[in-house]
Design a protein around this nucleic acid. Structure first.
Lengths: 149, 149
DNA sequence: CGTGTGTACCACATGAAGCGGTACACATAG
DNA sequence: CTATGTGTACCGCTTCATGTGGTACACACG
């Protein structure tokens, strides 16, 4: 389900209820987590990406601003945006609590889908295993097209 | 963290980014999953709940409509709304896929918080155990204030 | 009949999201 | 130096979802 050659990139669905700028944020974070984007890699410029996605530059800029706020990317004025070298996620404890809340909502949804805790447990296991495999497959050593920071 | 006596009820934060009608939906589904609301239980009327929450009746009605669409509640015109006796969740397979997607997002978030898969696994275990305990504690046999269906 | 139920409208206000355009400060290459 | 590319900051505007306030209807029940 990749776009071209390497595990390329960002998807945006204008008809999705989730805002496009947030879809960009999630895409970048997903690519980082999968090892497709590595620390130091350069991102497309705001205007480049806005053309690629057929989207307003302000929307892309909003996404980049959010990514910088989360310390996922670093911005160097006049140079471009790069994946953070030594990432430090802010609000760690708060975000862990949000993860727990998400898990609680999964338990609620499981109940309404008549899933036992055992089945939910298996779902966790299955998805984590898929993830582990796709990471080993798609992770490159280095060298995309982008120069490094 | 209950409101009064039994594990009472619905919370709504007008300043939350998540719409109030959806907060109502989540509250009801959570109460059902916890066993605080049981099949056949009667819900507050649209206008009652709108007064309780200091909210417009249309907003409550929207929540009830969504809950009926998900087969969580049953509506009897002129009588009231009741928790479904034999619930059948629609779009089961699609909703299971959404659950998997949620788990994938948890994996992404875990990566950015420098959590190992082991730590995430422990978080799953911990939240599920908390849930199991709170269910055993808060689940009543029957008889709230409401008449049954 | 009168009351309580869910439901269906309507007009309106508010805010987020996105667009289109312009402009500025900075870095780098020429 | 200039020219170009970078992120950023505005402005006005449209669109849409949310929520409000009000009114009205069909139904059930005492």
């Amino acid at each position: 389900m990749t776009d071209r050659g390497m595990g390329m990139w960002i998807h945006v669905d204008p008809r999705s209820p989730v805002p496009m700028y947030q879809q960009i944020v999630e895409s970048v974070k997903a690519n980082v987590a999968k090892g497709i984007l590595n620390p130091g890699d350069k991102l497309q410029s705001v205007r480049e990406l806005s053309v690629e996605l057929a989207i307003n530059h302000n929307t892309v800029a909003k996404a980049y601003r959010e990514l910088e706020r989360e310390n996922v990317i670093e911005v160097i004025r006049g140079r471009g945006t790069f994946i953070t070298l030594q990432p430090t996620a802010p609000n760690a404890e708060q975000r862990r609590e949000e993860m727990r809340e998400t898990i609680r909502k999964l338990l609620i949804e499981a109940h309404h889908l008549r899933m036992s805790h055992e089945e939910l447990w298996q779902m966790f296991h299955q998805v984590m295993e898929e993830w582990r495999l796709s990471r080993e497959t798609e992770a490159p050593e280095s060298t995309e097209e982008g120069e490094k920071l």
